[in-house]
Computed example of a mutant assay.
Amino acid sequence: MTMAFVLKLCLAAGLFLYGTAASAATIEVTIEKLEFKPAVVTARPGDTIVWRNEDVMDHTATSKGSFDVVIPSGKSGSMVVKGDGVVGYYCRYHPNMKGRIELGR
């Protein structure tokens, strides 16, 4: 056996025994009574945020320069998280509605 073959075999065995990197999560935020619930979520790059609009009016989840998701009444909208840090967002139609995504690695 060559050294390269042994290294590949060890790597494959390690992945089998310990698994691969954690898979991406789906994080749900409900919009109800003009509020994002929960108002603060923690996410990692690759996770998906899904906003479910339970109100009778349309909303958005907007972060200037980052994302602008339109969420019609009774529907949902989503986006995949990128980057790290803290990202605040609001509804363009109802600017008093605010939320925050705390991004980690």
Rank of each mutant, 00 (worst) to 15 (best):
T2Q: 04
T2E: 09
M3A: 09
M3G: 08
M3Y: 09
M3W: 09
A4L: 09
F5N: 08
L7W: 06
L7N: 07
K8P: 06
L9E: 08
A12W: 00
G14K: 01
L15D: 09
A21Y: 08
A21I: 11
A22H: 06
A22Y: 00
S23V: 14
S23G: 14
A24W: 00
A25I: 11
T26F: 09
E28S: 11
E28Y: 08
V29S: 01
I31W: 03
I31P: 05
I31T: 01
L34F: 14
L34Q: 14
L34I: 11
E35V: 11
K37Y: 11
K37H: 15
P38R: 04
P38Q: 08
V40Q: 10
V41H: 01
T42D: 15
R44Y: 14
P45G: 06
D47G: 03
D47I: 03
I49Q: 02
I49E: 01
V50W: 09
V50Y: 09
W51K: 01
W51N: 05
E54M: 14
M57E: 13
M57I: 15
D58W: 01
D58E: 10
D58Y: 03
H59D: 05
T60S: 12
T60N: 07
A61G: 04
A61N: 03
T62R: 03
T62E: 14
S63K: 03
K64S: 12
K64H: 12
K64C: 10
G65P: 06
D68M: 04
V69H: 03
V70F: 13
I71Y: 00
I71G: 01
P72G: 13
P72N: 14
S73M: 11
S73C: 09
K75W: 10
S76M: 12
G77A: 04
S78R: 08
V81F: 00
D84N: 10
G85F: 02
G85L: 00
V86K: 11
G88P: 05
G88C: 04
Y89T: 01
Y90G: 06
Y90T: 13
C91D: 06
R92K: 15
R92T: 15
Y93L: 15
P95R: 06
K98W: 03
K98S: 05
E102R: 04
L103A: 04
G104S: 12
R105F: 13
R105Q: 11
